[in-house]
Design a protein around this nucleic acid. Sequence first.
DNA 1: ATCTTCCACCAATAGTATGTTCATGTCGAG
DNA 2: CTCGACATGAACATACTATTGGTGGAAGAT
Lengths: 224, 224
Amino acid sequence: MNILLVEDEPKVADFIRKGLQEQLHPVELAYDGLFGEKLALENEYDLVILDVILPGISGLELCRRIRRFKPDLPILLLTALGSTKDKVAGLESGADDYLVKPFHFDELLARVKALGRRRLLTSPGVQYRIADLEVDGYKKTVRRAGKEIILTAKEFSLLELLIVNKNRVLSRTHIAETVWGINYDRGTNLIDVYINYLRSKIDKGFTPTLIHTVIGMGYVLKEE
Amino acid sequence: MNILLVEDEPKVADFIRKGLQEQLHPVELAYDGLFGEKLALENEYDLVILDVILPGISGLELCRRIRRFKPDLPILLLTALGSTKDKVAGLESGADDYLVKPFHFDELLARVKALGRRRLLTSPGVQYRIADLEVDGYKKTVRRAGKEIILTAKEFSLLELLIVNKNRVLSRTHIAETVWGINYDRGTNLIDVYINYLRSKIDKGFTPTLIHTVIGMGYVLKEE
DNA sequence: ATCTTCCACCAATAGTATGTTCATGTCGAG
DNA sequence: CTCGACATGAACATACTATTGGTGGAAGAT
């Protein structure tokens, strides 16, 4: 899930960004409201996390502006203030959810997941299986025919995307945006390379093969 | 917190499972009493949620059976019956708490949290083991291959977290929050250093090694 | 008070796996 | 046969992690 984080305190920003990246979400960061607005409007994020206290324009104002042009984009507000009045103000600005700092990171993750599910319908982070391949998004493990397979973070992220959308052809563009982030735009065959890595780890030596190329369109994970 | 849910109505089961997973609890599901009993006795859960009305054996009977072998395992009963008599019957069967359907999910969550906390606080005698490593959460002792190993407080706390979540990849963020408390400071490699301390004490010179790095994601304690 | 010891923590450096690119090889369609 | 599209292997760069030495402070001993 592509996430835009607007937070001016470097330490907090870093903490949140790293935590989300450890869950394999691509994260982009804006240090002030104006830049945040620019990014939010120019790109297609799945979620925006906004600090209320920002230099430039306030989080609430930014929230309203984003909401005006992107009514469906989920917005999560962060703030140090915890009064009911603040919460109401936040929600009235169009935020979908509200989290008071300091928070336990798991709490943030839970809300991120909840907001993400609203538009994706599928939520990575649970268990998936196809044929004799099992992917556990919680433990971050992969097994084929009962045997554990070790993947790197990027490989896992790619496989998770494929298995969540099994039987559906995924374009390279879509894969790039989901796994590598919004602003991925290199003229290389990086995705092909990673598909190749995955194949050698989860398909080589097993039947049936699960990763299929659809020429001109992209890749699918399916049986047969 | 690992949760076992025994519930035969698929809709209700799904509702509860999804809600709990959103809070990042791993949930396993049994659709009848016998299978529930098998799972409960064979695995290490932190909490069992039981429907009273079940095919096979009843929830009350199941509760008694589990209680016989796992006196410390928290059990939460769910039922459509709301009379005092029913509640008493449930609690007398050894359940720790009782919730009448239909309920608001927040209510369930609150109880789940409460039972979880109780277990963490009053968890004397919790012993964990993986391969030839034994950790006694009560005596605060650690042994590998029968030989006692002396750890400092922080080291023990870290090891305890790892072994409670064995086979699951733990992110640095999660580790930082659990062992060191909420802190935004990821500017140092303190966690890496403590992992290194632990490795030198419990892995060095032994096979198999138990602490594994998952680059980009965190660390796991597991065999293999 | 002072000394000693141990623990928690930090920072710099060395080390390694991963991420990325590029050149080349293969395959099928037309 | 030729082209486009994809697969593959290897080389390179980067990012992440391991390791070690050192600092400071707290607790206990003298």
